[in-house]
Design a protein around this nucleic acid. Structure first.
Lengths: 160, 160
DNA sequence: AAGCTTTGGTTGTTGCTTCAACTAAAGCTA
DNA sequence: TAGCTTTAGTTGAAGCAACAACCAAAGCTT
């Protein structure tokens, strides 16, 4: 297709398959959550991050980091979740520029209720399709990619 | 490979990292192509599929399969590309319901010109971060996932 | 303390994706 | 050949994301 530095055969095969997976997977995650909880995967992820935070509360900036969202995107999403009563926003006392987002009781129940189905979906479409060895390989590969894609470790994915 | 409701430690670590990669990678691909060619990754992919087809022409339905797009999505995208003179649409003679999309000379030049930068980007952010062994593992893992994500092999990713 | 800069967040506009009609050509059935 | 169904594709409306402009509180600098 060109005279430039292209990929070798094995590299090209790996890339074509991998990029197909990256294209297809978000749809699979979104579809199940939309059907079962009327939540996009991103909304679910936002609420999941809040559910693991102390007091189920995070400042918008921190939450944006955890979810790899821009602040405008997060602001809109949290506004929608707030309208549905799943999250509450409160002005931060120490720094009155800041806003805290808190998972409400209702939001907590929503996450609790939808987690099993989501995990089932992740198993069915990813984890259970791989051997234990491949799961380990996938972790190492993802770890290597994240050092470039997310050098500051914004998504806080190291160490649970 | 058990059937438990939650994920085991290693599975959870692998999933968290992998989902972060899936979230971050599209942005990296889009940003470079947008900057260098005013093309989204999807638009690039559409044109790349056309460039490899006989006569650089594909029916809309086939093109939709190759790119995992819905027909409406593809129709809109091709309309935009046509407006920019990169793709041309013509009625199919044998089946007058059908539309053929053809990569124009200008579109061909655009792909030729942007391919090296795109490949460079893929190398920098994915391939060159992995060992040859990991590239092989990634292919096998992606292949396993695609059998579930794309059972009909719509994205025609087999066999180079 | 006045004035500039930085930080934290929200709002509005534009563009793309999805979903739901809708048109038109084929194909089938009687 | 009339009438129904399926297939191919387009179009329009609605919703979410990216970007830019904006406001307000903090923090510096003098």
């Amino acid at each position: 297709m060109c005279n430039a530095p292209w990929l070798t055969g094995p590299q090209l095969r790996a890339w074509m398959r991998f990029v197909a997976v990256v294209e297809l997977l978000p749809g699979v995650l979104d579809t199940q959550l939309q059907r079962d909880a009327q939540l996009s995967h991103f909304e679910y992820f936002v609420m999941a991050m809040l559910s693991e935070a102390p007091d189920k509360t995070l400042r918008m900036t921190d939450l944006a980091d955890h979810t790899n969202a821009t602040l405008p995107r997060l602001s809109h999403v949290v506004a929608r979740l707030e309208k549905r009563g799943l999250v509450a926003r409160t002005r931060c006392a120490e720094d009155r520029r800041a806003t805290n987002a808190t998972l409400t009781e209702s939001g907590w129940e929503m996450i609790q209720a939808s987690a099993p189905g989501h995990v089932r979906n992740v198993r069915d479409n990813v984890i259970d399709l791989l051997t234990d060895e491949q799961v380990g390989q996938l972790e190492a590969i993802s770890e290597a990619l994240l050092q470039k894609l997310d050098p500051a470790n914004r998504m806080h994915v190291r160490g649970e």
